[in-house]
Structures are given as C-alpha cells and as structure tokens.
Design a protein around this nucleic acid. Sequence first.
DNA 1: GATATTTATTCAAGTTTCTGAATAAAACGG
DNA 2: CCGTTTTATTCAGAAACTTGAATAAATATC
Lengths: 159, 159
Amino acid sequence: MGATLSSADKKTRQDLILRLISERPLGTQQDVVTALADEGVEVAQATVSRDLAELGVIKVGNRYLALPHEPGSAGIEVLPSFILSLTQAQNQVVIHTRDGTAGAVSSVLDRVRGLKILGTIAGQDTVLAITSDNAAAEEVTTLITDVCRARTRPAGNIE
Amino acid sequence: MGATLSSADKKTRQDLILRLISERPLGTQQDVVTALADEGVEVAQATVSRDLAELGVIKVGNRYLALPHEPGSAGIEVLPSFILSLTQAQNQVVIHTRDGTAGAVSSVLDRVRGLKILGTIAGQDTVLAITSDNAAAEEVTTLITDVCRARTRPAGNIE
DNA sequence: GATATTTATTCAAGTTTCTGAATAAAACGG
DNA sequence: CCGTTTTATTCAGAAACTTGAATAAATATC
C-alpha cells in the first residue's frame, strides 16, 4: 500500500467522505482528495473515484450528494419521473408527485445526506419537507430541481 | 484454499449455518460441519468455530441459537438480568420483566432465530409472545429458561 | 482428578481486496 | 472539432482476509 502513515481504513475513509460532502459542496474528485488531505487522509484520485461509486454518491449540478445505498428502497434516480412540481413556502417545501409515489419520494429525500431536512410527511401524491430555515428550504428546492433537470448520472458502475 | 469445488463463499456459508441451526437443533460444531456437508459445503471444524463466533451464535443447553448481531440493540445476554418470570399459556408466553425492560426483551426475542415466535407485544414490564402452537410456546419457554439458567457464554470473542 | 469431548487458537499457505501510478475514456468549454 | 478538465479503468504490488491442519485450551463425564 502507499501511505501507511496516519492512513485510515476504507470504511473510515468512506464515512469521512460522506461527512465531508454533506458539510460543504465539493465539485470534483480532486476537491474530495484535498478535503480528505485536510483531515489527514491522503489518497489518490483513483481511490476517491472508486469510493464515490461504492458509496452511491451522485453528482448533481456542481456538487456531490450522498444517497446511502438502501437495498430494497428506491434510489434518487426515481425523482425525475415521480416529482411533478415543487414549491417552497418559508421553511417548507411542498412536492407534488405522481399518485402513490409520495412515500417513495419522501423515503429518498430522508436518505439524502447534505440536505438539511428536519423531516418529511408523505400523503398519496404530496410530500411536505420541513427544513430548519428558509435558506435550507431554498437549497432543497434548488437541489431537487437540479436533480430533476440535470440528468443525474450515477458516479460509476459497481460490480 | 482447500476445497475449490462446489465451495460457497463465507457469506453464503454463514447464511446457511444460520438457517441450519434454526431448522433443527445442532449440538456440536461437528454436527454443524456434518449438516453443512449434507448441503454440499465442506469445511473444517475450525471454520465453523470462527463462523459461529462471527455470527454471534450462542450455545444454550444443547443447541446453538442464532441471535443476529444488531448494532445498538441489546444482546441475548441481558435476558437473565431482565426476565423475572415467565409462564406459558396455550400458544402464548407471558414474560414478566424488570420495569422498563420489556421493550428490550421483546426486541431480543424477535431477533432470535430458531424460536418460532409469530410476534411479541411489550408493555412496561410484560412481554407477550405469540407462537404458532402450544408446542412452540413450550419450546420458547424451555429455551428462555435455559438461557437464564445456563450461563450463556458467547461463542467466541470477536475482535 | 483423569479421560474424553468439544471448542478455540496458532501457523502457514492460498486467495482476495485495496491502492496508487499511469492511462484511457468521457465530459466540458470554446 | 480541439484542448482541457474530470472521471473511470488497467495494472501490479502490498496488505488483509480466509482457511485447514495441528494443537492448545476449555468443558464435560465419569
């Protein structure tokens, strides 16, 4: 192995990556490499590429978003086809979905790290997402819009 | 590796072990080795020893019981200190516990594989376990009693 | 307590996984 | 299109894991 000093094992490093990309927008794998280095974990870009793929991290617009894999649950890729419209009101976001898919949408939103969503409530065709403040709601709106527009390609194909 | 033919990988083999010890009482590691062989998986006793330890399988009385590890949840070792008494009534078992611990006890029981418990309901200091029939309830009673009597030692120390 | 049974551990392969460097492939911006 | 940036993949070496045989340790039985 390359760096043996102060190196973290794979699990630790990947957890750290999830935290880092949740805390601040990281736009490239090089950014992630640098952020890791700041935390004392030195790895090559190739490793970050593989980590992001394994973690199921996707790149939406200009930042990575963590959506932890949850076997048996819908992935973020369903959002474009399920979400019909969304509206922000203060610290809330009201999302109109295809009938019956609100539960799936809220499930996905609950699992996206980096979104400061306090909680969601799903009806039949509507999801209400509560955020901590107006800015956070704004951010959620932007991100969801980006996801639905920006052809979210998964970062890498695992196995 | 030894046997390359028809060998299952570790994960597959351990899942098989959980199933086997849930289906019928296996009293020794040699029994497990034999049972695995019947399924076409040939391993040494040393491997079974390690598998049982990793799986968190415990030996109570004369059979192995599977209690899948659930990080953050109580393990089976809490039963002796939490359970005050238990009574079988038909296909039900009423378990009296220390106040406030009924939830933990039912959580553990729900996770023990090999017990044919249909479901449990926990109050503050009482757990009601519903089994499929009287015989199953009898078995549950016996096993819990054994656990509480027979100084349940975990099978191996991991890490 | 001695013997037998059962389980855990040590040791030494063989195998798999992990990783960085280099490079290829893809996406992006004019 | 062409160059640039970004990401994915190939390759090879190193580390970690997996396993059986042998053996030690623990437990049970008498």
